[in-house]
Design a protein around this nucleic acid. Structure first.
Length: 872
RNA sequence: GCCCGAGUGGCGGAAUUGGUAGACGCAGCGGACUCAAAAUCCGCCGCCGUUAAAAGCGUGUCGGUUCGACUCCGACCUCGGGCACCA
């Protein structure tokens, strides 16, 4: 063993050993419990960032830990290779997305390998490979056959200058990112997947996901948003009938059917057919509807915009009283939600209340407050108005509780066929069409005679041409006759291939199944899925808590219902790592696009007034920039930290150790360059401790019964460390405290200056425990240390040790003494000391007596092994 | 706007089931070693106070429950994530 720690040599040797012995390539093995450890696959953006390092190190620690616990561990890796950034890069440098993406994959694979992850690289996949997306297309066609996939119109962001659909990310302050033109909403044909068919099951099964964080389950439940209510139909009044050209009803959904008699208006979306009908003869309404088309489709924008409305001049009839109710167009009602229409009950809904007040609509109180908070609803709004109570002013339905009123009203509506109870979900069907090039082609052919024709299975995959270069003005596939010109599979006539591609969430909705059988050439999945799945531990960013995880749960169920897999839930346990945050600095020159600067390039100094000033030195000189606060490390905000420099300078083990030590995995990690030194220093100290110990030659066997107090003490510390680390890693998934415990152990070893044979035996055991416990976290240096401790076998094949309960046994325990809950003293008592003796000792303690003085003791609370609290 | 989470020393964090607040590390300060520096090793390190101690204060803010609250409850503030075409 070398005297000095050379991270480059140590890491090279360990990685070469793992590679030569193919340590991490695994096969199905019925004799051992399997453990499928999966980290979310990365987007190949160019280089790894610290979020990747954190994510994959967490996965690797667990994979290596479970391997040492005797499991057959699968840890695969792949690339979420389709997506918008590749097109953006192409626009900037003229390089085709395929080339850019594959270069990035090669580079990032190298970076991952330098971090020493225990990955089975033989299963690597990239979602842009035709051999992968072939099965996206194949399953899409099966979904189409079953009606799970279908086509209808959808609303998108439209850049009127570039004549292009914009992603939400490309809309900045309501304007197109390249043209600066105000965006508009536009309806286009879109393929949808019928996820709402599974809404109830996806919601109900959340309860069984015991291995998922509570907050993710809550977020998913709220996202699905099941609500029980009534569908109510309001018949058209003669004016509406005339405008629509036929009779009909206006359908709404409400959870508050008990307030039906308080409805004083109807609000409909700008895109609602009745709005269009009314607009034909109403220029003011027509221009209001046009105004509603402005702006993006983002919910955050819609929810914060000023609530505006305009009357259509049309009316519908109250289903019970027959009273005409005016129909308004309102910008806060969305065509995509429910029926695109709501009934306005100003007295008992805050939004309707505000709308009625700004538009001088009547307010009718129809609920009597259960708490007596009000008699009649009047401004200003108070939350009690929205609470349920007894119905009043509601004709035959007055005097009923909430549930009784809803039941009675639903029954009465049912008799007239004007309403029924219904369950409504906030969840919407999943629109998967993207008007973009770098994605999986949707395998459809549009024929003028035959309509929408699926590409026959024999012609799959529809291969994406890889040489095109997008220029930002729309989908290059739609300008490429070589791609879209084709023959109709049904009639043989000339037809046009669909040029939309699939949402990249499709790619990531089933990749975890494919790893089990990555070499299956003729099928999407095979029986090996039955061995490896479900994923035992899934690790990824909290930002994926809703969409990716929900889509994967849905997709897995669809495949289950086609008998392709047997499971419903793909991920048994989930660890959502917190984001890695860093400061965001930007500069917005007048009339130009905002620029971002990496925190590493920003100098912070104090200005004349004491406030911090942020400066960047560029080719043009020194520039003062704005500090926008903390945000997740991202390419678009230019605040990533490149781990490569860290690895070169300190080694992969230091990078891994620091990332795991800096904060617990579920918490956000605020990046700081300081602290890396500490991790490096600790590894060197451990190296020197082992080196020095090994220099003295082999230690004699440990004689447990022949130890002195100091030797027993070090042994106890070592085994306590082992017990704590086992629990911290295996159960709590808190790596920072496991590392802290090993640091304490090393401090104790450093203080232990016993050179006697048994002293050396105890130290040897303690160093072995430290090495084994750290093996999952810093595997390279531990690989070398294990050899340094005299072993000829490889550490990676070693079993995780079990703490010796005899070594843990203690003779005395410290009892905390409190008076009125405040710490006043401590005493040491034998383990299993009689309660009466502890109480007496506590009351006799001089510190306790000082604070009790002559006051009568009212109570004495005793917590065994912990404390005595004297209450006066 | 809606849903979810977080807030503890100069900094990252610990306190696992309501029971010793600040483990471990970073930074800083003092010392040893050195011609010197780096590295390494030893010591100190919440605020206030004191010769030293004791006492007092202290986990975003305000209030509550409890013998006892970082932990539970209510209200609020700030920051972060998500909001369906970024991944």
């Amino acid at each position: 063993m070398q005297e000095n720690y050379d991270h480059a040599a140590v890491e090279r040797a360990a990685q070469e050993y793992w590679q030569e012995t193919r340590t991490f390539e695994v096969r199905e093995d019925a004799s051992r419990p399997k453990f499928y450890c999966l980290s979310m696959l990365p987007y190949p953006s160019g280089r790894l960032h610290m979020g990747h390092v954190r994510n994959y190190t967490i996965g690797d620690v667990l994979a290596r830990f479970m391997r040492m616990q005797g499991h057959n561990v699968l840890q695969p890796m792949g690339w979420d290779a389709f997506g918008l950034p590749a097109e953006n890069a192409a626009i900037t440098n003229g390089v085709p997305p395929a080339k850019w993406t594959r270069q990035n994959i090669a580079y990032m694979r190298g970076q991952m390998q330098s971090l020493g992850f225990a990955i089975d690289w033989s299963r690597e996949l990239a979602t842009c490979d035709p051999s992968y997306y072939h099965w996206n297309q194949w399953l899409f066609l099966r979904m189409l056959e079953r009606g799970i996939a279908y086509r209808k119109t959808g609303v998108v962001n439209w850049d009127p200058v570039d004549q292009t659909v914009l992603a939400n990310e490309q809309v900045i302050d309501g304007r197109g990112w390249r043209t600066g033109a105000p965006v508009e909403k536009r309806e286009i044909p879109t393929y949808y997947l019928n996820i709402t068919r599974y809404a109830d099951e996806l919601l109900g099964a959340l309860d069984e996901l015991r291995g998922w964080p509570e907050r993710v389950r809550v977020m998913q439940a709220n996202w699905i948003g099941r609500s029980e209510g009534c569908e109510i139909e309001f018949p058209y009044a003669p004016d509406a009938r005339a405008a629509a050209g036929a009779g009909g009803t206006l359908k709404v959904f409400t959870t508050r059917a008990d307030t039906l008699f308080g409805a004083t208006f109807m609000a409909i979306a700008a895109e609602h057919p009745l709005a269009s009908a009314a607009a034909k003869t109403n220029p003011a309404l027509s221009s209001f509807i046009a105004e509603c088309r402005r702006g993006s489709i983002m919910e955050a924008d819609l929810a914060t915009q000023e609530k505006k409305g305009m009357p259509t001049g049309l009316h519908v009839l109250h289903p019970f009283t027959g009273a005409p109710l005016p129909v308004w167009v309102a910008n806060y009602v969305l065509m995509g939600y429910g029926e695109g229409a709501v009934m306005g009950v100003p007295a008992h809904d805050e939004r309707d209340f505000e709308f009625a007040h700004s538009n001088a609509l009547p307010v009718v109180t129809v609920v009597r407050s259960a708490s007596g908070a009000y008699d009649e609803v009047r401004a200003p709004w108070i939350p009690a108005y929205a609470e349920v109570g007894l119905t009043v002013n509601s004709g035959a339905f007055s005097g009923l509780t909430f549930q009784a009123a809803v039941d009675a009203i639903a029954a009465a509506l049912g008799k007239q066929n004007l309403g029924r109870k219904r369950v409504h979900y906030r969840l919407r069907d999943w629109g998967i069409s993207r008007q973009r090039y770098w994605g999986c082609p949707i395998p459809i052919i549009h024929c003028e005679r035959c309509g929408q024709v699926p590409v026959p299975d024999s012609q799959l995959p529809v291969v994406l041409p890889e040489e095109l270069v997008p220029d930002g003005s729309g989908n290059p596939l739609a300008k490429s006759p070589a791609f879209y010109e084709c023959q109709c599979p049904q009639c043989g006539g000339s037809a046009r291939r669909e040029t939309d591609t699939m949402d990249t969430f499709v790619d990531s909705s089933w990749y975890f199944l494919r790893y089990a059988c990555a070499d299956a050439a003729r099928t999407m999945v095979d029986s090996r899925v039955g061995y490896w799945l479900p994923v035992d531990q899934y690790i990824g960013g909290i930002e994926h808590a809703i969409l990716h995880l929900l889509y994967s749960r849905f997709w897995t169920r669809v495949m289950r219902d086609m008998d392709l897999v047997k499971l419903s839930e793909p991920f048994a346990k989930l660890l959502t790592q917190g984001m890695v945050l860093n400061d965001i600095y930007s500069d917005q020159p007048a009339g130009a696009r905002k620029r971002y600067f990496n925190p590493a390039d920003v100098d912070v100094r104090r200005g004349a007034d004491g406030a911090e000033v942020y400066e960047v030195t560029t080719a043009e000189g020194t520039l003062t920039v704005q500090h926008e606060g903390l945000g997740k490390m991202s390419k678009s905000e230019g605040n990533g930290v490149d781990p490569e420099g860290l690895i070169e300078r300190f080694g992969a083990d230091t990078a891994r150790l620091f990332t795991m030590f800096a904060s617990p995995p579920e918490q956000t990690l605020e990046w700081s360059d300081e602290g890396v030194q500490g991790a490096s220093r600790f590894i060197k100290r451990l190296w020197h401790a082992v080196h020095e110990h090994a220099l003295a030659g082999a230690a004699p066997p440990l004689e447990r019964a022949a130890l002195n107090d100091a030797q027993r003490e070090l042994r106890r510390t070592a085994h306590q460390t082992l017990a704590k680390a086992t629990d911290d890693i295996g159960r709590r998934r808190n790596f920072n405290t496991a590392i802290a415990a090993v640091m304490e152990l090393l401090n104790a070893i450093g203080r232990f200056a016993d050179a006697s044979p048994q002293g050396r035996a105890v130290r040897h055991e303690a160093l072995e425990i430290a090495t084994l416990v750290l093996a999952p976290i810093t595997p390279h240096v531990c690989h070398a240390l294990w050899q340094g401790l005299g072993h000829t076998t490889a550490l990676v094949d070693e079993r995780w040790p079990v703490a010796d309960s005899q070594a843990l046994a203690q003779q005395a325990v410290e009892i905390v003494l409190q008076v009125n809950g405040k710490l006043r003293g401590r005493i040491s008592v034998p383990v299993n000391c009689d309660e009466a003796v502890v109480r007496a000792a506590a009351l006799a303690d001089e510190h306790v007596r000082k604070f009790v003085a002559d006051q009568p003791v009212r109570r004495v609370i005793y917590v065994p092994g912990k404390l005595v609290n004297v209450v006066v």
